[in-house]
């Protein structure tokens, strides 16, 4: 298993190939539907004017995301009353919902990796080639196990999105992932999709 710590260099990213198992460490930021929509509309396409603390958060995010990783995750968090946050359950959520946004967010913030589950489509794959970056597949549902790799919660942005949708800044140690989309155009998801479609077509031809 390869070991990588954020911030990750372009060389280290180009070195990764589909199928590689990686243990990730360092600081990363969670983000899912509301966060991606907000980043695109407010800072990238600028179709929505920044409000409240948006610009301060943007400056912080630029520093945090440069060379780092976005984790598609809506965690269960304890300590909401005292703000002594602790991740209780934190597995990946379905990534494909961010397909319209992901490539642009990667390029804008120089995000080197996206962690999620289920894989992403051609637009993100192209984004991985251009940034360069990779898609890291985590084990869906393994929430208690993955929460244990979160050694510290540094803070949270956009709590107005609600706990699952907020952007949590976390530090992880040996977070296990598998590269399923690399920066050379390789996607395990399209390989498996094509192969299973062939089997399905044969099965559909079989008599009952």
């Amino acid at each position: 298993m390869k070991q990588l710590t954020t911030p990750i260099s372009d060389e280290a990213i180009r070195d990764l190939k589909v199928g590689d198992s990686v243990a990730l460490s360092g600081i990363m930021v969670t983000g899912r539907d509301a966060a991606h929509k907000w980043m695109i509309e407010t800072f990238i396409k600028k179709t929505r004017a920044p409000q409240g603390e948006d610009m301060q958060v943007y400056e912080e995010l630029k520093k945090l995301l440069n060379g780092s990783v976005i984790y598609h995750c809506g965690p269960v968090v304890a300590g909401l009353d005292t703000k002594e946050y602790k991740f209780i359950a934190a597995g990946p959520t379905t990534s494909i919902r961010e397909e319209p946004y992901q490539a642009d967010v990667m390029k804008h913030f120089n995000v080197k990796g996206v962690i999620g589950k289920g894989g992403m489509g051609p637009k993100t794959l192209k984004g991985c080639e251009e940034t360069p970056g990779v898609y890291f597949h985590a084990i869906g549902g393994a929430a208690s196990f993955l929460a244990q790799t979160v050694v510290k919660v540094h803070g949270v942005f956009k709590m107005d999105f609600g706990v699952p949708e907020a952007m949590w800044v976390i530090e992880v140690k040996d977070f296990p992932v598998v590269v399923t989309m690399d920066s050379h155009g390789g996607s395990q998801h399209s390989v498996i999709d094509d192969a299973s479609k062939k089997v399905l077509d044969d099965l559909l031809e079989k008599p009952y």
């Binding site: 809506g74 359950a89 196990f145 598998v178």
Partner: peptide, 25 residues
């Protein structure tokens, strides 16, 4: 196989600590 092994560890950990098996409850 790695995925299934992680899944088994997660099942045990959740039961021991009374934490959600999956964060999407």
């Amino acid at each position: 196989r790695g995925a299934l092994e992680t899944i088994m560890k997660n099942i045990e950990l959740s039961r021991t600590n009374s934490t959600p098996i999956c964060q999407d409850t």
